[in-house]
Deep mutational scan, measured.
Amino acid sequence: DEETLERIAKELKEKGWTLIVNGKLITDAREALKWLLEEEERR
């Protein structure tokens, strides 16, 4: 759910983690959240 996604995005940002999505590096939590939401919609 959205709360979980926001928590994940926040944790990613705090830890300075990066996500690699389709070979693209995502360092911004907002971008990561946007991607996660798009993935949820596809299901």
Rank of each mutant, 00 (worst) to 15 (best):
W35A: 05
K10A: 09
K10D: 05
D1E: 11
L36Y: 08
E31A: 09
W17N: 02
T18L: 13
R42T: 08
I26F: 11
L25V: 13
E39Y: 13
R30Q: 13
E31T: 03
E2L: 14
K10G: 04
E40D: 09
I8M: 06
G23W: 12
R7Y: 05
W35P: 00
E14Q: 03
E38Q: 09
I26P: 04
T18P: 06
A32Q: 04
T4V: 11
L25F: 09
T18G: 05
L19Y: 08
L19M: 05
E2Y: 14
K24A: 14
T18R: 05
W35I: 09
W35R: 15
E40R: 06
E14T: 04
I26H: 02
K24M: 10
W35F: 09
E6P: 01
E39S: 06
R42F: 06
E3S: 13
W17Y: 12
K24N: 08
A32R: 00
I8R: 05
L12N: 00
L37Q: 07
G23F: 14
K15E: 06
R30D: 06
W35E: 00
T18A: 11
A9I: 15
L37S: 04
E31S: 04
L5K: 02
D28T: 06
R7G: 05
D1Q: 07
D1I: 15
E3I: 14
I8E: 01
E11H: 08
E40I: 14
K15V: 03
E31M: 05
E41D: 12
E14D: 09
K10N: 12
L37G: 02
T18H: 08
E11T: 09
W17I: 05
R43I: 12
R30G: 10
L12A: 03
L25D: 03
E39G: 04
E14W: 05
D1Y: 15
E40C: 15
E41L: 13
D1M: 12
W17M: 02
I20W: 07
E3V: 08
T4Y: 12
R42P: 05
G16P: 02
A32H: 02
N22H: 04
K15L: 12
L33K: 00
E11G: 03
L19G: 03
K13I: 13
E3C: 15
I26S: 02
A9G: 04
I8S: 00
G23I: 09
N22F: 13
R43H: 09
K10R: 11
I8W: 12
E11D: 07
I8C: 15
V21N: 02
E2H: 13
K10S: 11
R30P: 04
D1S: 03
V21P: 02
L19F: 06
G23V: 05
R42W: 10
A9R: 12
T18D: 05
L36Q: 01
W17A: 01
T18E: 08
L5F: 06
E41K: 13
W17K: 02
G16R: 04
I8Q: 02
L25G: 03
L33P: 00
G16Q: 07
W17L: 08
E38D: 07
E14C: 09
K34R: 12
R7C: 15
E38M: 13
I26N: 01
D28L: 10
L19S: 01
R43N: 10
E2M: 13
N22L: 12
L5D: 02
L19H: 02
D28G: 03
G16I: 15
E41T: 09
W35V: 04
L37A: 04
L37D: 01
I20V: 07
G16H: 06
R7E: 07
T27H: 10
R7T: 07
L12E: 00
A9D: 06
D1A: 08
A32C: 13
L33W: 12
E31V: 08
K34Q: 12
E2G: 09
K15W: 14
T4N: 05
L37P: 00
A32E: 02
E2W: 14
E6I: 12
R43K: 07
L5V: 06
T4A: 11
R43F: 11
I20D: 04
L37V: 06
L33A: 14
E2S: 09
T27N: 11
N22I: 11
N22V: 12
K34D: 04
T18I: 15
N22A: 09
L36T: 00
R7Q: 10
R43W: 13
E40K: 06
K34N: 06
E39I: 13
E3D: 12
R30W: 13
E39W: 13
A32T: 03
D1G: 07
E3Q: 09
A32V: 13
R43G: 10
E31Q: 07
